[in-house]
Design a protein around this nucleic acid. Sequence first.
DNA 1: GCGACACCATACTTTAGCGTATGGTCAAGC
DNA 2: GCTTGACCATACGCTAAAGTATGGTGTCGC
Lengths: 203, 203
Amino acid sequence: MHTWRMEPINAPSPRAKLDQRNRLSAADWEQAALDVLAESGLAAVAVEPLARRLGVTKGSFYWHFPTREALIQAAIDRWERNDEEHVIAPIEAVSDPRERVRELVRQVSHKHQSHAVFAALFKALDQPLIGPLVERVSQRRIDFVTDAFRQAGFDPVTAANRARLAYSAYVGFIQLAQVGQPRMSHEEFEAYIRDFIEILIPR
Amino acid sequence: MHTWRMEPINAPSPRAKLDQRNRLSAADWEQAALDVLAESGLAAVAVEPLARRLGVTKGSFYWHFPTREALIQAAIDRWERNDEEHVIAPIEAVSDPRERVRELVRQVSHKHQSHAVFAALFKALDQPLIGPLVERVSQRRIDFVTDAFRQAGFDPVTAANRARLAYSAYVGFIQLAQVGQPRMSHEEFEAYIRDFIEILIPR
DNA sequence: GCGACACCATACTTTAGCGTATGGTCAAGC
DNA sequence: GCTTGACCATACGCTAAAGTATGGTGTCGC
């Protein structure tokens, strides 16, 4: 599958001058965890299957991480930081608030990779590590969108409701995308996004 | 939890004149499966835990069903029939198409039980039994809403897009409801629904 | 050129759930 | 009052994955 590598969060690791043969780092495991998380869900983030995928045994894994839970924690931390940096921050650069919301919708409707992880996380809300994360991320995003709507001239209550609606539609869409439900061509999709923006931000 | 019993689909079973001591029927297992499905997701619909919950052993289960998969199939069939009958059919009774969409939103925003099952199903889209079901149900519902929008005067493309948006928002909302994300009072929720309707069906 | 350390393999033990085999019990009907 | 059959218990084998224990190997600093 498309292994959409993220750049390492920590600056070039101390020993990363010339990576010897096939040795793995903790970051490699985290990245692999995010890959299968996006592909096959949290349940598939299992130690032995991951080891097989990476061509090693779990002897390797338990050197880098004390437990499976620690890997998941590290992986979603990595995802959260990356997401914050690559989807939220760029939007905040746009000055005009009205255009900002439009840009947010467009932006978010195209980055397919990070959304797959997010969709997978939504399927594991019962897990103690995941629930709080999704709640925190969602709250942050809804607040952000709400703020954008207010700056666009909507009164606080209307802004909050539109933000909720928009975010719910986003969450629902990435879920439905997995059943091949939006049987749309690229043009239809673009038209849908245009309508989406028109409906939420009239005039 | 609230054991919102469904009425048996098949007319009163042959031997149900006076149920002897504690014996279970296949329908009991299906209902219990739906309960834990709504509470704890599909993974929790496991034979032995279910048996413990019902106060029996799995010896009982394997008399009623050949396999776990058969139970799940029967349970979701039951859910689908019930859902079709209790949420879709009543809506179709409303004549005015505009009011029909409004009623659909209101209706759907209050029946808390069936939605919990639906939310759980969305978390198991990868499962071969669940994916096609959710796809089928979603297609049916989107088509239904699309049709309602067209009857309300929208052109076909706009109607389809608004139906997609509305349904996505619905799906997203029941997901978010599980993280306690919409920290709304009852009044706030009602106001949200009013805004929801206003935004999607202007004028 | 050698010891130390990072990285990995092998070989366990444990746990939880699926499924099977088989025998027990209790109510109904003849 | 004895048999039948619906319903359930008990005991077993199988599988996959989580951890643990321990030993092996290459590569670096010195």
